[in-house]
Amino acid sequence: MTSLVQIYILNAMVHLFSFVGAGTLRLLGNFGAIAIFFSLAFVNIFRRKQLREIVNQVFYIGARSSLIVMLVGLFTGMVLGLQLFYTLVKFGSVGALGSAISLSLVREMGPVLTAIMIAARAGSGMAAEIGILRISEQVDALYTMGVDPLRYLVSPRIAASIISFPLLTAFFDLIGIIGGYLTGVLLLGTNAGTYFYRVQSSLNMVDIRGGFIKALIFGAIVSCICCFQGYFCHMRTDGYGAKAVGLATVSAVVLSCVTILIADYVVTSFLM
C-alpha cells in the first residue's frame, strides 16, 4: 500500500517536473526567438528605402494615437489631482500636490499607461495586419519577390514605435499635469502658483530622462511582441487561419501589457 502511494507521488513529481521543464524550455525558446527576431528587424531599420515606410508608421502609431493618449492623460491627471488632494489634506501638505502629480506621471504613470494604450490600439493593429498578411501568403509573396518581409513589415514598425513612444509619453505627462491642475486648482482651490512652482522645482532632468528611457524600451517591447505574434501566427497550435490571427492579436496585447509592467519594475530598479 505504502509503495503504491510512493509510486503515485513519484509519478506526480515526474509529471510536475516535466511540465515545469517543458514550459521553461518553451519560454526560453520563445525568448531566444524574439531576441533574434528583434535583432534582425532592428538591423534592417538602417537599410535603404526604409524612411518612407517609417514615416507612414510614425503617422499610424504616433499621430493617430495622440488623441486617445491625451484623453487618457487628462483623466489620469484629474483623478490623481482628486485622490492626492484629499490624501495630502489629511497631512496638511496640500502644497505638495504639484510635486506628487508630476513625479507620479513623469516617472511611472506616463510611460506605463502610454505604452499600454498604444499596445491596445496600435499593437493589436500590428499583430492583426501582419497576421492577415501571413495567412493570405502575402508574406511569402514578399519573399518570392526578393523583398525581405522582416525589413518591409517589421523594421519600420519597430523604428516608428521607438520614435513615437517617448513623444506620446511627453504628451501624456503634459496633459496629465494640466488635468491635475484642473481638479487640484480650479475645482478644489489649491493655489495655482504653488502648484506650478512645485511641478517645476520637484521635476529633475533625471526623472524626465528616466521616463523617456522607459518609453523607448516599452516601444521596442510592444512593437517586437506584437509583430512577432502576427508574423508567426501560422505556427500557432491553438488555432488556424482567421482564428490564429485573432488569438495572435489577443496574445500580442496581453503579453505586451504584462511585459511592460515587468520591464517597468526592472528598469525602475536600475534607475533608482
Binding site: S136, E137, Q138, D140, A141, T144, M145
Partner: peptide
C-alpha cells in the same frame, strides 16, 4: 518568380 494559387496580391 512565383505565381501563388490564391494570387497573394498585396490587398
Amino acid at each position: 518568380a512565383y505565381l501563388f494559387q490564391n494570387n497573394a496580391l498585396l490587398d
